[in-house]
């Protein structure tokens, strides 16, 4: 896993936007993480707490919005969330599809006090 690299990057982005927003403090950070992008788990909060003392983001809480993998059927166009070990389209039974969601990997927003 590469939690530290990701955490450092979150902090870089958060600091940048907090300063531009005239923040005194960052209280909450909202992340959008697709199931396909990287297996980032809640332990990031632990790394974040190690990195943030005496920064504008000290004490901030990380919130994860997880996006499940979503296929668009190549045969009939139906969008569906494949479940576990079944990748068949619920409408036409074709297997798999183009991935239309699940690759997200970004900082969505921050909550600041100013």
């Amino acid at each position: 896993m590469h939690e530290m690299a990701v955490t450092e990057d979150i902090l870089r982005i958060v600091k940048d936007h907090a300063e531009r927003g005239g923040a005194k403090k960052v209280t909450d950070i909202h992340l959008v993480i697709g199931e396909l992008s990287s297996f980032i788990d809640d332990s990031i909060q632990f790394y974040f707490d190690l990195l943030t003392p005496n920064t504008i983001a000290e004490g901030a809480s990380l919130h994860f919005e997880r996006i499940r993998i979503r296929f668009r059927c190549r045969k009939c166009g139906q969008e569906f969330e494949p479940d576990g070990q079944d990748w068949h389209c619920p409408s036409c039974q074709a297997l798999g599809g183009d991935v239309v969601a699940g690759k997200e990997f970004y900082v969505e927003s921050i909550e600041i006090t100013s």
């Binding site: 990701v6 936007h17 927003g21 923040a23 970004y106 900082v107 969505e108 921050i110 909550e111 100013s114």
Partner: peptide
């Protein structure tokens, strides 16, 4: 207040 960011990691 909530500040939109939408910046990829």
């Amino acid at each position: 207040n909530r500040v939109p960011v939408v910046e990829r990691l």
